[in-house]
Design a protein around this nucleic acid. Structure first.
Length: 424
RNA sequence: GGAGAAAUGGCAGAGCGGUCGAAUGCGGCGGUCUUGAAAACCGUUGAUCUGUUUCCACGGAUCCGGGGGUUCGAAUCCCUCUUUCUCCGCCA
């Protein structure tokens, strides 16, 4: 959510910037400014009336104490009409306030100046490419065949237990999951992240804080009896740790890492390219989250990008880094880098990580603020997050890229974690 | 699940219808003292909205778990929700 101050001060700038995201902000901005103006007008009136009311009430108190009953009664008379006026004004204010809020959350975050214009995936800017694309034999299988061949992931069984998109990992398949999770967490810890193990069900406030609610309501599993939501990413609970929190500037950047299962309904997104591990309802992910000082948040972003790059390159996977164009970015992001790894048997790039700086957009909703030393004023912090990494597509790429006639070779960095070097 | 008690500033904790944004202590910050530190002493110390103002600053409103109500006036009374604690029960 953009701050109302920014909208007041830089209306034209906002409209201009949001064009990069192909978003026509003009009408919403105008509506917001109108609502804000009337809100303030009413607010100022009620404030002064309320002040008058308080003054009279105090007088009454003193009169009562002095035993001047009649004068007190006379003063009371004066309050009745005031009280009614205040009430009618506050009744007017409520709907305006609510409408203002709902308009405010319709505006997407401003894209960073380095964000390329564009409409979709084709317009993303390739920033970097690394690793070597393997040459597989003609007999090479896509991962959905490999998992059957080696009996390491069972989709049919998941359908029996739950439904489509809930795979069951078996034997070395399960162990590979655990190895990847531990590898990612250990690497994160080495990079200065604190490990967090949060709840994987969250309440409505948390869903709102990171922006899943109200707009993406249908994308989350909802435990209606208790009104809890299954998290679509660890970003939700971990970032919400800092909801309504005022940090000291010297505590920044705050760096947390968390492994959680993630749950996504993926309503409406089934179609091509969703076979096997490419898209699931439940999957594992290690997420990194930073709360940063606005002056240094882009340094944090670069640091996160190079951390993720380290992970994919240590796993020996061919990868590329994209800077997303305005049209392909999320609603909340100011700048996003996507990581894709090459899936050799599918012969296509798979997105495995998305690293973003949200600047103060999320923080404004969360009320996540900080205070500079010696400064009286609180300011909004910047929030960032990134996958480091999401497992299924990494597993898909490892299986496909590393297949040999003898079996699937485990990347050397993972062997201490798996305890085996070959799936056969 | 049953019965009872409670929720106040960064923390502890008073206040239980009138001048209370809230005593006091601790902590934090600034200062005096000291070669330096500690101790002692003095001062200072929340958030949000908003008005005047270039800034500094000054003024008003709101906030004592959330929401609602009573009252001229609510931290204080009533209703409701949430959470915590104690005892009993149940389960691990």
């Amino acid at each position: 959510m953009l701050t109302i101050n920014l909208i007041r001060e830089k209306k034209e700038f906002i409209i201009e910037r949001l064009k990069v995201k192909n978003f026509e902000a003009g009408p919403i901005v105008e509506k917001i400014l109108t609502l804000d103006a009337s809100r303030r007008e009413i607010q100022v009136k009620t404030d002064s009336m309320q002040g008058e009311m308080n003054r009279i009430s105090k007088e009454i108190g003193i009169l009562m104490k002095d035993g001047k009953k009649e004068e007190a009664e006379a003063a009371k008379e004066k309050t009745y009409s005031l009280k009614e006026e205040i009430k009618s004004l506050t009744d007017k204010l409520m709907p305006i306030d609510n409408e203002l809020k709902s308009e405010l959350i319709r505006l997407p975050n401003l894209p960073h100046e380095s964000v390329p214009k564009g409409y979709g995936a084709d317009d993303n800017l390739k920033v970097k490419e690394g690793g070597i694309i393997p040459k597989l034999s003609d007999k090479a299988l896509p991962h959905w065949d490999l998992i059957k061949k080696y009996d390491i992931i069972d989709f049919e069984l998941g359908i029996k237990l739950t439904g489509a998109g809930f795979p069951v990992y078996l034997g070395k398949g399960a162990r590979l999951q655990r190895a990847l999770i531990n590898f990612f967490l250990d690497e994160g810890e080495k990079a200065g992240y604190r490990e967090v193990m949060p709840p994987i069900l969250v309440n409505e406030d948390s869903g709102f804080g990171t922006g899943q609610l109200p707009d993406k309501e249908g994308q989350m599993y909802h435990a209606t009896l208790d009104n809890f939501y299954l998290i679509p990413t660890a970003e939700v609970p971990v970032t919400n740790i800092y909801r309504d929190v005022i940090l000291n500037a010297d505590a920044l950047p705050v760096k947390n890492i968390a492994y959680t299962p993630c749950f996504r309904r993926e309503a409406g997104s089934w179609g091509a390219h969703v076979r096997g591990l490419n898209r699931l309802h439940q999957f594992d992910k290690v997420e990194i989250v930073q709360i940063a000082h606005p002056d240094h948040s882009y340094k944090s972003l670069e640091e996160m990008v190079s951390h993720v790059e380290g992970l994919v390159s240590k796993l020996g996977l061919p990868y590329r880094i994209l800077r997303l164009c305005g049209g392909d970015m999320s609603f909340t992001s100011a700048l996003t880098y996507d990581f894709e790894v090459w899936s050799a048997a599918q012969k296509r790039w798979l997105e495995v990580s998305s690293v973003s700086n949200f600047e103060s957009f999320q923080a404004n909703r969360l009320k996540c603020r900080f205070k500079d030393k010696g400064d009286k004023q609180t300011k909004l912090a910047h929030t960032l997050n990134g996958s480091a990494l999401a497992l299924p597509r990494i597993v898909a790429a490892i299986l496909e890229n590393n297949q040999t006639d003898n079996g699937i070779k485990i990347p050397p960095v993972l062997i201490p974690y798996t305890g085996f070097d070959l799936i056969s």
